[in-house]
């Protein structure tokens, strides 16, 4: 298997607070790496610094794109442009990440315009296709984001990321606002694209059931550190770190008779090595 992304010793602090502490991992092409962890543990900061939406303090992010291995943080803006087409991000907040002054048509068309793909008619066609793929009514293209529900907006964000047919997609909580039925359809879509086009996903999520079903490998973060890393089934079946155990014990069961009873933090060893 070819490696697609290699992150080494990535660090980022805001002020004197170390938010991402020397994180390293590799991702293979056409696989899915799940990132789970405490809220505020630096997952968003981590994936944003991989994409250069944030400048990290140190560490390297190497990406094996069409042009071979490149360190993303050493590229100039011009050299970066073709890579922007290969690497896409779906944002955590579906309300803030859509420009409120643009119609859905303009929002989805923009990546195509920037990368100068196709003519107007083709782009329009493509937008309609994408909307249909994420289960939205194509006639909604002329509407503004405020006229959509949370889950519908999230799907607009997904469509925007997929419209360029990228190779690596960073999904930050990308299906959390969807009902389970639409969610499973979107996950199916992502999976189908993966087997069809060989997409690679970095999948940040809180819903551990989704992670278990959707990801190949998983990375557990706790206060800026990676505390556990490995194939999904392994980590979920025999967790090493106490924080992973805590996480797994806190999954609410859909059976009303099975009461939620997470482990007690006090009894756990949550110290970082």
């Amino acid at each position: 298997m070819t490696q697609l992304l290699s992150v080494k010793n990535l660090c980022k602090s805001f002020g004197d607070q170390l938010i991402v502490n020397s994180v390293s991992f590799d991702v293979n092409e056409s696989s899915t790496l799940g990132i789970v962890g405490e809220s505020g543990s630096g997952k968003t900061t981590l994936v944003r610094s991989i994409l250069r939406a944030i400048d990290p303090d140190s560490g390297s992010v190497r990406y094996n794109g069409e042009a071979g291995w490149q360190n993303l943080h050493e590229l100039s803006a011009k050299e970066l442009l073709p890579l922007r087409r290969e690497v896409q991000m779906i944002f955590q907040d579906p309300f803030a990440s859509l420009n409120p002054r643009m119609t859905v048509q303009t929002i989805l068309e923009e990546p195509l315009v920037i990368h100068d793909l196709g003519d107007k008619a083709w782009r329009k066609q493509r937008v309609m296709e994408m909307l249909e793929k994420v289960q939205l009514d194509p006639s909604s293209a002329a509407r503004f984001p405020h006229a959509f529900s949370g889950g519908q907006r999230q799907r607009i964000g997904i469509a925007r990321a997929l419209i360029l047919e990228p190779r690596l997609v960073v999904c930050d909580e990308s299906v959390s606002a969807l009902d389970v039925s639409v969610q499973s359809q979107i996950l199916d879509l992502l999976k189908a694209l993966q087997s069809e086009l060989g997409l690679t996903y970095l999948f940040v999520a809180h819903d551990l059931r989704v992670v278990r079903e959707f990801c190949d490998e998983v990375l557990v973060m706790y206060s800026g550190n990676v505390v556990e890393q490995g194939p999904v089934e392994e980590v979920f079946n025999s967790p090493d770190h106490d924080y992973t155990r805590l996480l797994l014990s806190a999954i609410p069961s859909p059976d009303p008779d099975e009461k939620l009873d997470p482990l007690d933090r006090a009894t756990l060893n949550l110290q970082l090595a």
Binding site: R48, L51, A53, A77, L80, L81, R84, R85, Q88, M89, F91, D93, A96, S97, L98, N99, P100, R101, M102, E110, P111, I114, H115, G157, R160, L164
Partner: peptide, 23 residues
Amino acid sequence: DFVVAARLVGANDRRIIFRHMLP
């Protein structure tokens, strides 16, 4: 976020200012 989003699809400064921020 929507400005960062535009940056991440490759929009340059001019586009971000005139298409996303000014409107």
